[in-house]
């Protein structure tokens, strides 16, 4: 019964501009318009190097999104398994899932990235991008597992009992009754993790994946325009996360509307 009060708060994504938080909402508009203004100013008044730089980066932006989306898919799958494992009554399954979560959460992402990249390299030669996706997916899967677990546990136990009493077994209950209700609780923190993951993909630039940051570094090391390059890269990341957090806030709005019905 004490498990009823569940707060899902995995706050390393971005500040979500929820309508009830007036301060944050204004801050969102200020940041968004301000960033756009700075970008416009730079492109119009200093087309060299900014326009040149901007043309150099799209490949990197695509790679960043590819890595993010592939990693989040892997993380969702692992997260669902880890979450179900963590609430499983089977001791072994539970232990495996908990150990996975425990270990992954205890190691910095960058170290994991190196480790999986080089350890994997010893066994099989995989493309850099695949190694990056595996590392990010495993890491975020552990966090996602906690989100799934909390989401599942936030559903009133009476729902499970009603389902069991009708003759559904435990996995049918999970599939037809619990998960369809839990996803509404799970979606906001998953969106948050998505944004956090997008930012963390910048780490993969270290292992030779040509994401935004690595493309920028290539540009900078040829042109020696470090300040200009990182200014633009920061602006691009900021714009992406601002837009994503706004989308997320709108989706949440829709969901809560649905809930009130």
């Amino acid at each position: 019964m004490s498990e009823k009060q569940v707060i899902i708060d995995v706050g390393d994504g971005a500040a979500i501009p929820r309508p009830e938080d007036k301060g944050l909402l204004s801050a969102w508009w200020l940041s968004f318009l301000g960033t756009l203004a700075v970008l416009a100013y730079l492109l119009i008044f200093h087309p060299d190097p900014y326009l040149r730089l901007l043309k150099f980066l799209p490949d990197g932006i695509i790679v960043t999104f590819q890595v993010t989306i592939a990693s989040i898919c892997l993380a969702l799958l692992l997260g669902l398994l880890a979450g179900l494992g963590r609430i499983s009554r089977n001791r072994i399954v539970n232990l495996v899932a908990s150990t996975y979560v425990e270990i992954i959460r205890g190691i910095p992402l960058l170290v994991q990235l190196f480790y999986i990249y080089f350890a994997l390299g010893r066994i099989v030669r995989v493309p850099d991008m695949v190694a990056a996706i595996i590392a990010l997916g495993f890491c975020y899967g552990a966090y996602m597992g906690e989100v799934f677990r909390a989401g599942i546990m936030s559903i009133d136990h009476g729902q499970t009992e009603a389902s069991l009493s009708l003759g559904f077994n435990r996995s049918q209950t999970m599939r037809y009754v619990i998960l369809p209700q839990a996803w509404r609780t799970i979606l906001p923190p998953v969106g948050n993790e998505f944004i956090a993951l997008l930012k963390d993909t910048s780490l993969v630039s270290i292992i030779a994946v040509s994401d935004i940051l690595r493309r920028g570094r290539e540009f900078a090391s040829e042109s020696f325009l470090y300040f200009e390059t990182y200014t633009l890269i920061a602006i691009i990341y900021l714009l992406i996360t601002l837009v994503l957090s706004k989308i997320l806030s709108n989706v949440e709005q829709r969901l809560s509307h649905y809930e009130r019905r």
């Binding site: 009133d156 009476g158 729902q159 009992e161 009603a162 389902s163 009754v177």
Partner: peptide
């Protein structure tokens, strides 16, 4: 059940 427990979704 006392608390109905209809499937809310």
């Amino acid at each position: 059940f006392q608390s109905f427990n209809l499937f809310r979704h």
